[in-house]
Amino acid sequence: MSQVDIQQHEENEERAYGFWLFLMSDAILFSLLFATYAVMVTATDDGPTRSEIFGYWRTVANTALLLCSSLTMGLASIAIREFDKTTGLRWIFVTMILAFGFLVLEIQEFAGLVAQGAGPDRSGFLSGYYTLVGTHGAHVTIGLIWMAVLCLHLALRPIDPIIQSITERLTMFWHLVGIVWIGIYSMVYLPGLYQ
């Protein structure tokens, strides 16, 4: 490796580590949202309770979409690491479709709930629910924008260490989004759906 390559490699490592720390910070943020949701879950103020508002098959669909997107994102990252642009782009594109599907379902769900009078201002429980799930949704949105930007990078130039570094961090981010969703369906949806 040349001097420049080594420097680039070290910089990418620093970026990956810095981003890892950011993800840890983000994980703490989500823990506090989970904790708050757990505190608020009974604070329904005579409004809708958790056993009334969640849909089983919607949760199944959301979970399936995100889990598959974790796999496709991983396959994209492998391809880009191996300088295989076509395969990389293809998997990112699939990931984007899956993520977009997830967002559509979530927005539908939120809109439906608000229409029923179960908006976030209805009760402490719903405030906690929307904030936790909504923050996760915001992360999905950011991931989606990030993927679009990555596609633009890939379209404009051959794969280089900078693109690989972007992909590496995006993949880490996307896996965190997936892990948080495990928490959400396990702590929010399924306990609400269980009779």
Binding site: A43, D45, S123, L126, S127
Partner: peptide, 13 residues
């Protein structure tokens, strides 16, 4: 936005 995390009413804490 009228949420009820810490309000006196609406189940806030």
């Amino acid at each position: 936005a009228g949420f009820h995390f810490f309000t006196n009413d609406g189940g806030g804490n």
